[in-house]
Amino acid sequence: MGENQFSRELRLLTPSHFTHVFNDATPAVSPSFTVLARPSGQSTPRLGITLAKKRIRKAHDRNRLKRLVRESFRHKQHNLPNVDIIVIGKSGADTLTNQEVFSTLDKLWKKLAKRCKAS
Protein backbone atom coordinates (compact mmCIF):
# COMPACT_ATOMS: atom_id res chain seq x y z
CA MET A 1 0.00 0.00 0.00
CA GLY A 2 2.85 2.41 0.74
CA GLU A 3 4.21 2.36 -2.80
CA ASN A 4 0.94 3.76 -4.21
CA GLN A 5 0.78 6.90 -2.10
CA PHE A 6 0.19 10.40 -3.46
CA SER A 7 2.43 12.52 -1.25
CA ARG A 8 3.40 16.17 -1.64
CA GLU A 9 6.53 15.22 -3.58
CA LEU A 10 4.35 13.71 -6.34
CA ARG A 11 2.34 16.89 -6.97
CA LEU A 12 2.89 20.08 -8.93
CA LEU A 13 2.10 22.70 -6.31
CA THR A 14 3.02 26.18 -7.50
CA PRO A 15 2.12 28.20 -10.60
CA SER A 16 5.79 28.18 -11.61
CA HIS A 17 5.71 24.35 -11.76
CA PHE A 18 2.71 24.51 -14.09
CA THR A 19 4.28 27.26 -16.22
CA HIS A 20 7.46 25.20 -16.59
CA VAL A 21 5.43 22.34 -18.11
CA PHE A 22 3.20 24.55 -20.29
CA ASN A 23 6.21 26.31 -21.86
CA ASP A 24 7.67 23.24 -23.58
CA ALA A 25 5.44 20.19 -23.24
CA THR A 26 5.10 16.81 -24.92
CA PRO A 27 1.36 16.20 -25.46
CA ALA A 28 -0.78 13.08 -25.42
CA VAL A 29 -4.35 13.81 -26.51
CA SER A 30 -7.72 12.09 -26.30
CA PRO A 31 -11.25 13.45 -26.86
CA SER A 32 -11.74 13.91 -23.09
CA PHE A 33 -8.27 14.77 -21.74
CA THR A 34 -5.01 16.35 -22.80
CA VAL A 35 -1.91 15.23 -20.92
CA LEU A 36 1.21 17.39 -21.10
CA ALA A 37 4.63 16.31 -19.86
CA ARG A 38 8.11 17.76 -19.56
CA PRO A 39 11.28 16.26 -18.06
CA SER A 40 11.60 17.41 -14.47
CA GLY A 41 14.97 16.40 -13.07
CA GLN A 42 13.16 14.90 -10.07
CA SER A 43 13.49 11.28 -8.98
CA THR A 44 9.77 10.58 -9.48
CA PRO A 45 7.03 11.75 -11.85
CA ARG A 46 4.84 14.58 -10.55
CA LEU A 47 1.20 15.34 -11.36
CA GLY A 48 -0.88 18.49 -11.74
CA ILE A 49 -4.56 18.54 -12.65
CA THR A 50 -6.55 21.37 -14.27
CA LEU A 51 -10.29 20.99 -14.72
CA ALA A 52 -11.85 24.29 -15.79
CA LYS A 53 -15.26 25.26 -14.51
CA LYS A 54 -16.05 26.43 -18.04
CA ARG A 55 -15.54 22.87 -19.37
CA ILE A 56 -16.87 20.80 -16.44
CA ARG A 57 -19.65 22.81 -14.85
CA LYS A 58 -20.52 20.89 -11.69
CA ALA A 59 -18.15 20.79 -8.73
CA HIS A 60 -18.97 17.18 -7.89
CA ASP A 61 -18.01 16.15 -11.45
CA ARG A 62 -14.70 18.04 -11.22
CA ASN A 63 -13.97 16.45 -7.83
CA ARG A 64 -14.82 12.94 -9.11
CA LEU A 65 -12.54 13.37 -12.13
CA LYS A 66 -9.69 14.68 -9.96
CA ARG A 67 -10.03 11.66 -7.66
CA LEU A 68 -9.98 9.29 -10.65
CA VAL A 69 -6.96 11.00 -12.25
CA ARG A 70 -5.01 10.84 -8.97
CA GLU A 71 -5.95 7.18 -8.47
CA SER A 72 -4.91 6.26 -12.01
CA PHE A 73 -1.63 8.16 -11.62
CA ARG A 74 -0.86 6.44 -8.30
CA HIS A 75 -1.23 3.02 -9.89
CA LYS A 76 0.78 3.88 -13.04
CA GLN A 77 3.49 6.16 -11.59
CA HIS A 78 6.06 3.35 -11.50
CA ASN A 79 5.71 2.86 -15.28
CA LEU A 80 6.19 6.55 -16.08
CA PRO A 81 9.48 8.35 -16.73
CA ASN A 82 10.59 11.13 -14.37
CA VAL A 83 8.53 13.94 -15.84
CA ASP A 84 6.16 16.66 -14.66
CA ILE A 85 2.66 15.88 -15.94
CA ILE A 86 -0.42 18.08 -16.27
CA VAL A 87 -3.82 16.55 -17.01
CA ILE A 88 -6.28 18.97 -18.61
CA GLY A 89 -9.96 18.06 -18.72
CA LYS A 90 -11.98 18.83 -21.85
CA SER A 91 -15.69 19.33 -22.36
CA GLY A 92 -17.54 16.04 -22.08
CA ALA A 93 -15.10 14.43 -19.67
CA ASP A 94 -17.78 14.57 -16.98
CA THR A 95 -20.05 12.28 -19.03
CA LEU A 96 -17.57 9.39 -18.91
CA THR A 97 -18.05 6.51 -16.49
CA ASN A 98 -15.30 5.74 -13.98
CA GLN A 99 -14.17 2.75 -16.06
CA GLU A 100 -14.01 4.87 -19.23
CA VAL A 101 -11.92 7.48 -17.44
CA PHE A 102 -9.48 4.80 -16.21
CA SER A 103 -9.15 3.19 -19.65
CA THR A 104 -8.65 6.58 -21.35
CA LEU A 105 -5.99 7.57 -18.84
CA ASP A 106 -4.24 4.19 -19.16
CA LYS A 107 -3.89 4.77 -22.90
CA LEU A 108 -2.63 8.31 -22.32
CA TRP A 109 -0.05 7.19 -19.72
CA LYS A 110 1.30 4.59 -22.18
CA LYS A 111 1.39 7.10 -25.04
CA LEU A 112 3.11 9.66 -22.83
CA ALA A 113 5.73 7.19 -21.57
CA LYS A 114 6.50 6.17 -25.14
CA ARG A 115 6.84 9.76 -26.35
CA CYS A 116 8.96 10.88 -23.40
CA LYS A 117 11.37 7.97 -23.77
CA ALA A 118 11.72 8.69 -27.52
CA SER A 119 12.64 12.35 -26.98
Rank of each mutant, 00 (worst) to 15 (best):
L80Q: 02
A113H: 10
D61F: 03
V83L: 03
R8Y: 14
H78N: 12
V29M: 13
H60C: 10
R64W: 02
R115S: 14
G48N: 04
L10Q: 14
K117L: 11
L51Y: 00
S7Y: 13
A118R: 11
A52I: 04
H20N: 12
K117I: 08
V69P: 01
L108C: 06
H75C: 03
Q77W: 14
S103H: 05
T14C: 05
F73V: 14
L51A: 10
R38Q: 05
K111F: 10
R11V: 07
L47I: 14
T97K: 03
R38H: 10
L68I: 08
L105W: 02
R55N: 14
F73S: 02
R74A: 13
L68N: 04
D94G: 06
N4K: 09
R74F: 05
T44P: 06
T34C: 06
N82Q: 08
N82C: 14
K114Q: 15
K110R: 13
K54A: 02
L108D: 04
L96M: 14
D24I: 10
N98S: 06
Q5V: 13
E71G: 04
N98K: 08
P27S: 05
I86Q: 01
S16R: 15
R62Q: 08
H78T: 12
G89F: 00
R55M: 07
R67L: 07
I56S: 02
V101R: 00
G92V: 12
Q99F: 07
T26P: 04
E3A: 12
L65V: 08
K111D: 13
D84N: 07
G2L: 09
G89C: 02
E71P: 00
K76D: 15
K58A: 12
R67Y: 01
T95R: 01
D94L: 00
Q42S: 14
R55D: 11
F22W: 03
F22A: 13
R38E: 02
P39A: 15
K76I: 11
K114L: 10
R64P: 00
T97N: 10
E3D: 11
R11L: 15
N4S: 12
R64Q: 07
L108F: 06
P27K: 13
S91A: 09
V35I: 11
N82H: 14
G92H: 01
I85W: 05
H20D: 15
S103G: 06
S43W: 02
F22I: 05
Q77R: 07
I56E: 00
Q5G: 15
I56K: 03
R8K: 09
N79F: 11
T26C: 14
P31G: 11
K90D: 10
V29F: 08
T44E: 04
K90I: 09
K90C: 05
S7T: 15
N4P: 00
G41W: 05
A59I: 03
G48L: 01
D61I: 05
R62K: 05
S16K: 15
T97F: 01
P39W: 07
L80T: 03
M1F: 09
R55K: 12
P45G: 02
T34H: 08
S43F: 13
